[in-house]
Design a protein around this nucleic acid. Structure first.
Lengths: 166, 166, 166, 166
DNA sequence: TTTT
DNA sequence: TTTT
C-alpha cells in the first residue's frame, strides 16, 4: 500500500485476443490480455510512413479482472493504468526467462472505451451462465471458482502467470 | 510522431548503477540505467512489513542521454517519462530472448530529483574532459563520440542494446 | 523545452461543445473545448449511487489544434495529455479572475477515441472549404487565417483566451 | 470509486508554504499546499532564456493529509498524483469565483522526494505535541481534532476549502 | 455542455 | 544494483 518510488503505466489501445481467465486459490479472478499500441512516423530519409506496433501483456487482478472477463473482448479499446512487474519463469526446456507485464489491481484502473453498440454481442453468450460481477455477492465469487480452475488446466503457460506476493 | 494508442510509463526511483553509455553510428548518445521502485505493504495474515523492489531497464536516447551521462550516477533519484518497448535478441547460447525497456527519447522526459549538494562530486571528475552538453555546439556532439565508441567495446552485452528503427 | 518539475494532466472524457477555433497573429490555430469526466460512487450512508461530473477547459495549440478543429465534435471521446496553466484575466466588470486550463501543445498529445463510423459526418461539411491539415503546406496555414480572424471577433470572451508567452 | 473517464494530474515540484491544516467535522484531516512547477525555454526571436513558474493548489485528504502535515514543509519537493476539481465559492465582496485544485485522496498518491537530511528539523518542533500518524491509533485521530478546529478559524479563506461530496 |  |  505504501511505496517508495513511483511505478505507473498508462496505455490506450486495442485488445488482440479474448481475455484469458484464471482464478487464484482464494478464488480471486485473474484476466490476461494483449494490448496493442502503435507508433507511426515518417522515415527521415525516405519520407515514407512507418508503423510499429507494440504488444503489451496486461494482467488484471480481483474485481477488475471479473469486469474484464465480462466486458472486454478481442478488438475492445481500453484505457489501462497499472504498474510494471517483471517476473521470472522457467520454460519447458528449463530455460529461465523474464516477462514484463502491466499489472492492474486495486492500485490501478481500467476504462472500456468502446461505445456499447460496438461490442460483439455474440461473444458474450458463452459467458451468460456467469452472473454479472456487480450483482454477485462476495461469497459467490469463491463459489464460482472450482469450475474455472478445472478450465484453468487447459490454458497454456498458466503456471507462468502466478505472481507471488501480489 | 503520430500514434494510435497511448504508451506511457512514469517512474520515480533510484538508479542502481553508473549509466552505461553507448553511441549510435550517427553519433547519438544512448544511456542505459537500472531504476528501482519499491512497494511496501503489510502481510494480510502475519501483519509484518513486506517489501518488493522492481528493477526497470531505462534507455535514454539523444540529447537526454548526454545529460544522463553527465549528471546521473549510482544512487541518483530520477523522474522518468517514457514508453514501453519490448525487443527480441539472441543470447550467446543462441536462445531468443525478449527484454522490455522504458525508452526515453524526444517524446519523453527526465528529471533529476537530487538536490545539487547530494551529487557525488568525485564521480564527475572523470567526466570533466567532456564539456557540458548545454554549452557544446551540435558539431562537437559527434566529435566526442570516437573516444566513447572505443570504450563501448568493453561494455558487456552492448549488442543487446541496439534498437533498430526507434 | 527544459523544465524544473513535472506538470502533467491526463484526461479521458467526452467533449461538451463544438471546438471554438481562434488564430494567433502568426496564424497558429488555437482550439478550445470543454471535456467532461465523471466520478460515480455510492453514498456511504444511504448506499445510493452518486455522480459528479467535472468539466475541464482544454486549449490546443498549433497543428494539434487544427486536427481538433477538423475531427473533434460535440460528443467526441478524447484522450488528452497536457499541462496545467492558470491565467489571470479581467471580466467586463473589471473584476480580476483566474482560469485554470489544460494546455495541449507540442509537449502534449491528443487521441480521438471514437471509432470512425461514430463521427458525425454532417458536422464536417461546413469545414470542407478548408483543406485537411496534413496535406496543407505550412504557408497555407497563414493564408487561411484572415478569414478566421474575422470570424474570431464573433466569439464571445475571445479576449480571455489569449495566453501570453506560451 | 467507479468512474467514466479519466481525470489524472501528476506534479513534481517544490512547496511554497507550510501546509495549511484543517479538519472535517468527522475529524478527517485536510492539508493544502502551493506547489510550483517551472518551465524554461529560449525565446524564439531573442534566444534569451525564459522561465515561467506555475503554482498549483494541492489539497490532500485523510491519512495522506496527516502525513503531509507531519513531513511536508516549505521547500519540500513532492511527487503528487491526484485529480482536478474546480469548485465555486463566494468571496467577501459576494463575487462568485472558481478555483481549480488538485485533489489527492485515496485515489491519489504522494511521495516526498527530499532525502531525510534535507528536512528542516526546526519546523517539526511545533508539531511534536502531535503523535506521528503511523503510530497513532484510529481513535486518537478524532481526539486530536478540536485543538485544530479552533486554530482553523484563524486560517484565511478557510471556508473556501470545503469540498462537498468528495 | 458530454457520456453511460 | 538503488533508496528509506
Amino acid at each position: 500500500m505504501a511505496a517508495r518510488g513511483v511505478n505507473r503505466v498508462i496505455l490506450v489501445g486495442n485488445i488482440g485476443n479474448e481475455p484469458e481467465m484464471r482464478y487464484m486459490p482464494n478464488g480471486n479472478a485473474v484476466a490476461t490480455v494483449s494490448l496493442a499500441t502503435s507508433d507511426t512516423w515518417k522515415d527521415k530519409n525516405t519520407g515514407e510512413p512507418q508503423e510499429c506496433t507494440e504488444w503489451h501483456r496486461v494482467v488484471f487482478f480481483g474485481k477488475i479482472a471479473e469486469i474484464v472477463g465480462q466486458y472486454v473482448h478481442k478488438g475492445s479499446k481500453l484505457y489501462v493504468e497499472g504498474r510494471l512487474v517483471t517476473r521470472k519463469w522457467t520454460d519447458q526446456q528449463g530455460i529461465e526467462r523474464y516477462t514484463t507485464e502491466i499489472v492492474v489491481d486495486m492500485g490501478g484502473t481500467m476504462q472500456l472505451l468502446d461505445s456499447r453498440q460496438d461490442q460483439p454481442q455474440q461473444q458474450q453468450t458463452n459467458q451468460q451462465q456467469r452472473p454479472a460481477p456487480q450483482n454477485r455477492p462476495q461469497q459467490n465469487q469463491q463459489a464460482a471458482v472450482p469450475d474455472y480452475n478445472e478450465f484453468d488446466d487447459d490454458i497454456p503457460f498458466a503456471k507462468h502467470h502466478s505472481i507471488n506476493g501480489v
